[in-house]
């Protein structure tokens, strides 16, 4: 096939791992549309049944603050842009 391979855009994936918790960023997947993105997120990031709810959003649609504005924007609380997940609950990892 000679035509240019159309690239499925990336979507960021957020998973609520348990009731009572926030959705947390876990990574990204590629998909042609939001519906497919949701299915791919389910298959890839919750295949051990870790989630109760999933959000997907096209990576290009995320507005993020820039680290340069850090002082004004985040004064005491540290940066929390979307690429800085707090999902990885270290206590969950065996032997850590």
């Amino acid at each position: 096939m000679s035509e240019v391979d159309p690239v499925w855009p990336p979507y960021e994936v957020f998973v609520r791992s348990k009731r009572g918790l926030n959705h947390v960023h876990v990574g990204s997947i590629h998909a042609a549309d939001p519906d497919m993105a949701l299915r791919h997120a389910r298959d890839v990031y919750t295949r051990r049944n870790e989630g109760v709810s999933i959000w997907v959003v096209r990576s290009a649609d995320i507005t993020a603050s820039s680290p340069d504005e850090k002082d004004a924007f985040f004064a005491p609380s540290g940066d929390k842009i979307y690429r800085h997940p707090t999902f990885y609950d270290v206590e969950d990892v065996p032997h850590m």
Binding site: W8, H30, H40, V44
Partner: peptide, 11 residues
């Protein structure tokens, strides 16, 4: 055809 489909078909 794509890595995500690998995962889906295996599921």
């Amino acid at each position: 055809p794509e890595l995500e489909e690998e995962v889906a078909l295996a599921n």
